[in-house]
Design a protein around this nucleic acid. Structure first.
Lengths: 299, 299
DNA sequence: ATAATAGTGTCTTTCAGACAGTATAGT
DNA sequence: ACTATACTGTCTGAAAGACACTATTAT
């Protein structure tokens, strides 16, 4: 085949390609792992309250040394970013075979003090009965924190060309000994022709990087997806009562639901078993399983 | 301050940090730009049909030389990934001030033949009357393609532990002279304990990289977001008739809607003006504008 | 007059929310 | 008997879907 000198073949091009010619950002993955766990019970006949929990790791190295952060790390050259998220989670927490979905990729220039680091975040859900956080192999501290969020301010500035919406949210993360806080601001600007949505961390205490932002984004995704998909079952053990399932919804949505309506809506997603949960000083509850077979969808 | 030798301060750590110690992937952005345009009319009293269009660029370089691809490019060290998406779009298409939202980050190891490249994809929407694709500055060919998608197969394999769902979709992209096709498979596996969702390109003709996958993902996002947000107005000019708005919905959702119901649902989002669209051989239609002020939300 | 689009009124069905009421264990 | 939870039936109102009907222009 004849070709002139500046017309090279694709193979020649690829053989001569040097990725190191250009300066590149580093890429990490960070995973927001949620679980719902029981609080201790005081009264023998009362059901245990449920709490939404998130998994954090105490940083042993700079930057943010001795502060807490999401499990994650750098993406290697021979693994996809999904695989990187799985690997880091397994390495750092000994947790695997769990629900994992990509959330968002955070690309601000200064979000990491070390160097330019872009981070793809993931959402993971795990049933608390499957937990097996062995004494972590390389002396890293891994711990579940309860998470609560509160909208502390909502502002609307209206101009003739549109409006600016601002929402400030405070996050509180607690374990037995520590309380971490983070304040996040979401700004939607519709006063120009292009609609822009910004998310910023205003302050963080005890939590490294922009992880407060990522955690809140994960919480929003969980709240919205639980309403129109069946991801909640990833937080449930094999068998559960409908009240337990309802409590998981309530603690995530942060609101009480009416049992009759909840049962009507979830009836298609569950299968009754012959087992019951009893010995609790009140009417025993039937145990159900997630009805995989009858629910096809791509959500 | 006294500290032993392996206890360095955060500042010392950062000063000594060398990002180049580790091999890193490259990072690009790719943008799926949609617009809705009128087809030519044959009958003076018929309204023009609308078509969903997508913006592609003809590659002048290897790999995939002379094939079409999404506008995009490498992220620079001093810009956020959002800024990179804006910049590339502006450079390659002379289009700016448009709606832009992040879609998904594609991280398979072999998705780019040059080297390891991870790509964050974006969705952009532009009103076709604002278009200004000047003769592109560096002789790049930029062109709008009409886009249609068809689900060509849906398989359900049921096992005792769950099911595997498979959906095959074919994409057809057409301009005046060329037809590009791409076939995409989405697989959801619920037979193991962890639910996994895969997306793969089976074949592409005329379209480079895994861009068929990204385009279909963008189309899905557009279809779903148009139902519960007001992003459709980013595709509309300042003033429009309700039938025009309805046609935009119909061409995106690929289904006919009933006018009475459509008007009821959209009534809160539009403001009537005193103007009408006439001279069309039938009853003139009132012109409306997007009612920004009365709609606050963070979607 | 006609063809084509513009626009409205209303019946039906579906679904979410509210709430009252019944059922059943352990102590 | 009492307490706490388990579970069901049904009313109501809001929203989505279907469809018939009227209105208005250029040719």
């Amino acid at each position: 085949m004849i070709h002139n000198d500046n017309e090279i073949s694709e193979q020649e091009f690829l053989d001569n390609y040097d990725a190191n010619k250009y300066e590149r950002p580093s890429l990490t993955v960070d995973t927001v792992v949620f679980s719902v766990m029981d609080k201790d019970i005081d009264n023998y006949r009362k059901l245990p309250e449920k709490e939404l929990k998130i998994l954090l790791i105490k940083r042993g190295e700079h930057p943010f040394k001795n502060m807490w952060a999401l499990p994650g790390g750098f993406v290697k050259m021979d693994e996809s970013i999904d695989e990187a998220a799985y690997r880091e989670l397994k390495e750092e927490t000994n947790v695997d075979k769990i629900y994992l979905e990509q959330l968002y990729t955070w690309g601000k220039v200064d979000r990491d003090p070390r160097t330019r680091v872009i981070s793809s975040s993931y959402l993971a859900l795990i049933d608390s009965t499957k937990l097996d956080l062995k004494a972590s192999h390389d002396a890293m501290e891994v711990c579940w924190f309860s998470i609560t969020s509160n909208v502390i301010e909502e502002k609307k500035k209206i101009s003739k060309d549109g409006y600016i919406l601002e929402k400030r949210v405070s996050l509180e993360l607690k374990n037995d000994t520590e309380t971490l806080t983070s304040e996040v601001v979401i700004t939607k600007d519709v006063s120009n022709n292009d609609i822009s949505l910004r998310r910023d961390v205003i302050e963080s205490r005890g939590l490294g990087f922009d992880h407060g932002l990522i955690i809140y984004y994960g919480l929003e995704r969980l709240k919205s997806k639980i309403e129109y998909t069946d991801i909640a079952f990833n937080l449930m053990p094999l068998e559960f009562t409908l009240t337990e399932l309802q409590n998981v919804y309530e603690v995530i949505l942060n609101q009480k639901l009416l049992a009759a309506n909840f049962r009507r809506k979830t009836s298609g997603y569950v299968l009754e078993t012959d087992n019951v949960r009893k010995d609790a000083g009140h009417r025993p509850a039937k145990l159900f399983r997630y009805n995989k077979q009858d629910n096809y969808n791509f959500y």
